[in-house]
Simulated assay, not measured.
Amino acid sequence: MNILVINSGSSSIKYQLIKMPEETVAASGLVERIGLDGALIHYKSGDFKLTKEVDVPDHETGLLKITTYLLDKEFGVISDKDNIQVVGHRVVHGGKTFSETVEVTEEVKEKIKSVFPLAPLHNPHNLKGIEVAEKVFDKAKQVAVFDTAFFQTMPQKAYQYAIPKKFLEENDVRAYGFHGTSHKYVSEQAIAYLDRHEFPSSKIITVHLGNGCSITAIKDGKAIDHSLGLGPANGLIMGTRAGDIDQSVIFFLIDKLGYTAEQVNNILLKESGMYGLTGYSDMRDIEEKSAEGDEDCRLALYMNGYRIKKYIGSYIAAMNGVDAIVFTAGIGENSSVIRKIVCDDMDFLGLQLDPRKNAVRGKTVRAVNLPEASLKILVVPTNEELEIAKQSFAVVTK
């Protein structure tokens, strides 16, 4: 079965064509700068790679361009667009309505629309991707996979905020969580690596570190706590997002310094985090500058690691133990520096990093702890597209 996985953003479409149940990627790529000058389409199939500047005024044009490449007689991988039987869509927010992956219906689309206020930067574009795919691949089944669904197992003591109950009961104000497809995928990979015969009751902490960052406590395969909340802004320090902050700072900026609420929101989401601390949002630049002696960059790295340490400690307490700490996503998989900062001075927990193993990059699940360490430190490459394909396949074949 051919499943086209789509991650539709405000000005981009990330895609993969995955053959299931073989779990093999036939083609992948990205359409970027949709609606802007200099739009680009990237396409990869096997050893063939192509990047081309194209005119892409809207998402429908972008998806049609992708289809043209998939059908190309020279480097395409399908002979007819109807060879795509399923289109799996990443949808950021499912609110409290969706606790699992679903086939798209008119009712599902209306419910996705109803939670626009909870994810105004993401859900409208996710829904647009669904509507466009329905037109382009009119014979395929459309499936929605929700980032928030994995966290529906969190207990109320973890997801409810200590504010008047009416906001939960009347307005659904609570912690929902994000990066769910990533946390689900890497936790399952980690549990399989640990071997359930040895760990029949698993306690895993997954640390997703990219431009957006989050951390999850996962007990027996189910999320019990998570660092992101109503929106994807709190918790760990991120590329441009502040993460946890005393709410008094917000009112100080508004009441004392004269910023508007919109300006403060923009500051916290787009001008803070590692960018606000250093002037750089890319961790590679920050690590390079730190190595050259930039004190702002050095401090930012240690602030970043310190925040992760605190969450690890609290989640170990929440689960009454832990079997493995799992690092994933762009920074988690590739930054030996951040992993070292996080794991240093944590030996009282049995967290002992092997410097040699930590310095090696790889594309498979690997342990980077010392052999004698009582706690596993794993690096697990995430694969959100494959997870979406697996969940979509399960829905249409059950």
Rank of each mutant, 00 (worst) to 15 (best):
K14I: 00
A324C: 04
N123E: 03
E292M: 08
K222D: 07
C213M: 05
T105F: 08
K309S: 03
D285W: 09
P120D: 01
I3C: 10
A149F: 04
G210F: 10
G76P: 05
A119I: 01
I224E: 12
K44I: 11
I112W: 05
T260M: 10
V264M: 11
K19E: 14
T397F: 08
G321F: 00
R366E: 06
V368A: 11
D347R: 14
K65N: 12
V326D: 13
T105M: 04
E262L: 07
Y311I: 04
N266Q: 11
I41C: 05
R307D: 06
S336F: 11
V86M: 01
V264I: 08
D147V: 00
V395S: 06
A158G: 02
L378A: 03
D220C: 01
L64E: 00
N265D: 15
R241C: 02
D225A: 12
Q16Y: 06
V92G: 03
V5W: 06
I112R: 06
V91P: 03
K390S: 05
G276L: 10
L299W: 09
N383G: 02
I13L: 13
S114L: 02
C297S: 15
A133I: 03
L71T: 00
Y176R: 03
G88R: 00
G76F: 11
E23S: 06
C297G: 05
P117E: 10
Y69S: 07
K44G: 08
I377C: 05
T153H: 15
P155Q: 02
D58P: 00
H226W: 14
H125F: 10
Q142E: 13
G88Q: 01
M1P: 05
T328G: 10
N211M: 07
V342H: 07
V115W: 15
E60N: 09
E169I: 03
T68P: 01
E262I: 03
R366Q: 07
D55T: 13
N211F: 13
I237V: 14
V108T: 09
P355T: 01
V396M: 12
L118S: 09
G231K: 15
L353W: 09
E22V: 00
L277A: 15
K135I: 02
S187F: 10
F167G: 08
Y185A: 00
